[in-house]
Amino acid sequence: MLLSLLLIFVAGPRYGQSNVLVYVLVCSAIGSLSVSCVKGLGIALKELFSGKPVLKEPLGWVLLVCLVICISIQINYLNKALDIFNTSVVTPIYYVLFTTAVMMCSAILFKEWQHMVLDNIIGSISGFLTIVSGIFLLHAFRDMPFTPNLLPLFLQPGRPDRHQSCQHQPLLPSEDKGSQSAEEEEEEEEEEEK
């Protein structure tokens, strides 16, 4: 929350119009808080359906109010970023920063990483890095034209026999093939004369 307030009141007026990261960081930080509020409300609803008197507790109502405030701020700053900067720039940066902020917020508030075994931690980090690298590659090469000519020869469409290019041809013709080719040449010459 402190980072969000600094970005809103200090960095936003100074650098918000020129740097895409300012408004997107505000959206990501506030968005991670909204995800945590939704998790808390989900737990409250689960307890409500199990028969516990959750509606009398103030925490559920505080989480609901915080969720409405966080979503309003998040949408406001996301719209500001989209008004100033190109969507193809804002979207991948927002997705990566939002995912990072949610993982950090969940680790701090819910202490999820303390209860995870090593396999799950490695899987979560690997999945996150795969998403980040995939988004980077999609947007880094979005303007590069990909034609079939860029493919290896055996994968190019329209080739009669794709496996033929991988086979080696003999350097010297055998005697049978040589005699056949001479006979074929004679037949071709006779056809041309006719």
Rank of each mutant, 00 (worst) to 15 (best):
Y77W: 00
S34L: 10
R14V: 08
N76L: 03
V89F: 04
C27E: 05
V90M: 00
L155A: 05
G42P: 01
P170A: 01
F154C: 14
V117C: 15
F98A: 04
Y95N: 14
L150H: 10
E191T: 09
G31V: 05
S88M: 14
L5I: 13
L153G: 13
L63V: 05
A101P: 03
E183G: 11
H115N: 12
P92E: 08
D83T: 10
L55R: 04
A140L: 12
L48E: 01
I30C: 07
L150S: 13
S34C: 00
L129F: 12
K39R: 00
Y94T: 03
E191S: 03
R162Q: 09
Y94K: 06
H139A: 11
E191K: 05
I71K: 03
W113P: 05
D176H: 13
Y15A: 11
N86P: 14
F110Q: 02
S72L: 09
M103A: 07
P170I: 06
I121K: 14
L63M: 04
L129W: 05
N120L: 07
I125G: 01
I108N: 01
L82H: 10
F110A: 04
P148E: 03
I43C: 06
F49V: 06
E190C: 13
V22C: 13
D143T: 14
V65I: 11
N120K: 15
V24W: 09
G31Y: 08
V89P: 08
P92L: 08
P152V: 08
V26T: 15
L150T: 08
E191N: 00
P53E: 10
